[in-house]
Design a protein around this nucleic acid. Sequence first.
DNA 1: CCCTCTTCCGTGCACTGTACGGAAAACCGT
DNA 2: ACGGTTTTCCGTACAGTGCACGGAAGAGGG
Lengths: 223, 223
Amino acid sequence: MPESIWFRDDARRVRRPRLSRERIVEAAVALLDAEGVNGFSMRALAARLRAGTMSLYEYVKSKEDVLDLALDEVIGEIDTEEHGAWRQTIVHQLTQSRQVMRRHPWMAALTGTRPLLGPNALARSRLFYSALAAAGLSGPALTAAVGALTYYVNGYVAAENTWWATVRTPDADAEIRERVARFLEDNATELSRHAHVDDGDFDRHFLLGLDIILDGIEARLPG
Amino acid sequence: MPESIWFRDDARRVRRPRLSRERIVEAAVALLDAEGVNGFSMRALAARLRAGTMSLYEYVKSKEDVLDLALDEVIGEIDTEEHGAWRQTIVHQLTQSRQVMRRHPWMAALTGTRPLLGPNALARSRLFYSALAAAGLSGPALTAAVGALTYYVNGYVAAENTWWATVRTPDADAEIRERVARFLEDNATELSRHAHVDDGDFDRHFLLGLDIILDGIEARLPG
DNA sequence: CCCTCTTCCGTGCACTGTACGGAAAACCGT
DNA sequence: ACGGTTTTCCGTACAGTGCACGGAAGAGGG
């Protein structure tokens, strides 16, 4: 009777490792969100999982691996819904990209230095190519257009995040903010005259730059 | 007589510190060029200068300082000669940017994550703004155009460097190269069909993407 | 000759990634 | 029920990091 299924704790006996690659990646994203890429360490990651540091290495070869996996994981968050006109599809995809990169500001530090070959990255890339191909582009023009758009988005959001990180720095508060503002006003007149002051400005500028590039692309469409 | 100027060794007595911020920055650039941003450490930098590690801290507050200074230093290498037509001036400046970023591949890892506020960075920025202002742009359109162009260049060269670093990796040689090639062919059909295979391809693609953006800008010029 | 100031740097601390090898647990064949 | 194999976990250790601290060595001025 005690060995009946209802009393046995099979759950414990089934091969159920406490750790898994999925759990590690999930915790890594959370840690990166909370502490940034500098505050990210294998020890801290293990602590967050209540595991020994070296246990992680059963599932990944190195810290680099974890970063690659975490990056591809959040790239998977980008929504790629189709819209009617190709231009709206593109704008939507890139706006989504921007939002994900703002949710995970550490992405910029990684995308610039490593090839994006994870499954999610490849999937977004394919979708993006096909959206532009549907517009009528092909060959080198297609490749160039994809490049122009993706590099613009990445660079824009990286700069945007850096800006917020600089201004929102919780030192001396108004003190620092004031100094930065004066500094920019003195040193980069044209730049500061149209400087960003709130989210709305960033939104508008983002879409404006996007429109410029899209105009250039449209001019190159056959027919 | 022995105390005559010709016998005294005044050069030795003149305050002439062995180290200086300039020497440190110069050595830092050399070290970064040789070892990349991962191989860069304060100890290695000091060794290169035949100095004790802590001596560096007499001239800089932190490693971050050194990186900021090194980055602004190489930004200063960008040549910003004027050309007749605004479009050629822009193309020239950005081509120069690309070349400098290829000479110092570690730049990409830094530009994405820190504000570029050094004197050289500000100077290039101003020149770039004025080149586009001369074309007739102003206000938010000017800011957006500058953003679209600079982010494109940074992103493009970062990707380009990553590509070369991946392909040129001196492991297993042809083995790895073959695998990467197959991988791309399988996973990103459109991408690999127009993949880059040599410097010439990168040059052409770079200019092509640039032209697309410039077309978009030109369409927006008043008059 | 002392006093101060600049320059240099050895030592030490808290922290990093990860190689290695061992312990414990779960599975399998008998 | 038991020995052996494989999987999971992780403590220890090592070489490396950035940099705080405090002291030494020298130069300049009184």
